[in-house]
Simulated assay, not measured.
Amino acid sequence: MGSEESSQLVWLITGTSSSFGRELVDIALARGDQVIATARSVKRLGDLPKTPSVRLMELDVTAGSDVIKRKINEAVTWFGRIDVLVNNAGIAARAIAEEGGSQIFMENAKINVLGALDVTNAVLPQMRARKSGTIVMIGSRSSWKSEVETLAYYSSTKAALRVFGETLAYELDQFSIRVLIVEPAAFRTWSPNFLTPSITPVKISDYNPLRDGSEKKVAVIHGRQPGDPRKAMELVVDVVRGEGKAKALLEKYGWPLYLPIGKEAEDAIREKTQQIGHVLDVWGDLIRDTRLDEEAT
């Protein structure tokens, strides 16, 4: 973003009624930036600071691309541009995979993936026109290693969000638009609803021990997550703005694309890459021995 890294930025943040989104609003304002804070209901944003630097927008990320484009086009007029989009709105509808089926999967995908896609596409035209901008995807450590067994759908959609972000980064590089894939570990951001498993049409008794164990695990984790959401989002803002703790690393190594946050995220990613590396080492000869035979000459 060139010289904009040290100047006032305009942020549009989805899902600002709680957790990471709420922290980002406060931190961006403290850095002197302007914020368009969104939520499904602006009534839930009533306690945000009353300042000209904040505008509130009711935005349901599942409303469809046409509705979202109209909303975003209006939002752009408020501060004249959007420099940073943070796709933070998310849901963790939990269920045993065989019990939940495609219904529960889509509950997650509509917000975690399709919603992020529609909001991103609505913001991109004005970023492309200026050849400047940053798209932040709030993913999850769970896409590398699920915290509890009933998070298959949530984990899958967060993995899809990461791959979408990777491809998007490649496509947008020509316009000097950056993508940052943030993958937090266990932070104290869960809402009480996260403790409640989704209602599924059937309960398969074979899964009772696994389901019961999962609920106990969630109950133990809730309220004891080691991560501080404020520190996590301070780091995100440091990276986006090119300052603070991130400044020296950005100057030395450049833009990171990936930003795992929390030791548990680091551990999960290292474990997964080691597992994949082991498979490549053991099965490498067979993996490579799959090309078409040379045609007889």
Rank of each mutant, 00 (worst) to 15 (best):
G254Y: 14
Q275W: 07
R291N: 13
P209V: 00
S198L: 07
A89Q: 01
V86T: 06
A185E: 01
A28F: 03
G46W: 03
E215Y: 14
D289S: 13
E266D: 13
I27Q: 00
I221K: 11
L85P: 05
P125G: 08
A219F: 01
L286K: 14
V148M: 04
V240C: 09
L286P: 07
A152N: 08
L114K: 12
S198D: 01
D293Y: 15
L210Q: 05
S155K: 04
L59D: 02
V61A: 01
I177N: 01
S7F: 10
Q274H: 12
E271P: 00
A186P: 07
G64Y: 07
I91D: 02
S155V: 01
A89W: 05
I135W: 12
Q274C: 02
A186Y: 14
G227Q: 08
W190S: 09
N88G: 06
V119G: 04
V123E: 04
D228K: 13
R178Q: 08
V113F: 14
A89F: 05
S143L: 03
V239S: 06
F164I: 11
V202P: 15
E23L: 10
N208R: 14
K216E: 02
Q103S: 15
D173E: 15
R241H: 01
R230Q: 00
E107G: 05
M137N: 15
E243D: 10
Q34V: 00
G165Y: 08
S132P: 11
L292G: 13
T290Q: 09
G101H: 14
S18D: 04
N87V: 04
V220W: 05
S132E: 07
G165S: 04
K247D: 10
T77C: 06
Y253Q: 08
A97Y: 14
N193M: 12
S6E: 01
F79K: 06
I68C: 10
I104V: 15
S53E: 07
I276Y: 06
S146K: 13
G21I: 04
E147T: 14
R178N: 10
M106D: 15
P201G: 08
F20R: 00
D281K: 14
A185D: 09
M127W: 13
A152V: 13
D212K: 15
L85R: 04
S155Y: 08
L249D: 00
R94E: 01
L45R: 12
Y207V: 06
G165K: 07
W78R: 09
L259N: 07
Y258E: 00
A63T: 05
M137F: 15
S143Q: 11
E234S: 10
D60I: 01
H222Q: 05
A63G: 06
P49D: 00
E58M: 11
A185P: 11
P49Y: 01
R141A: 13
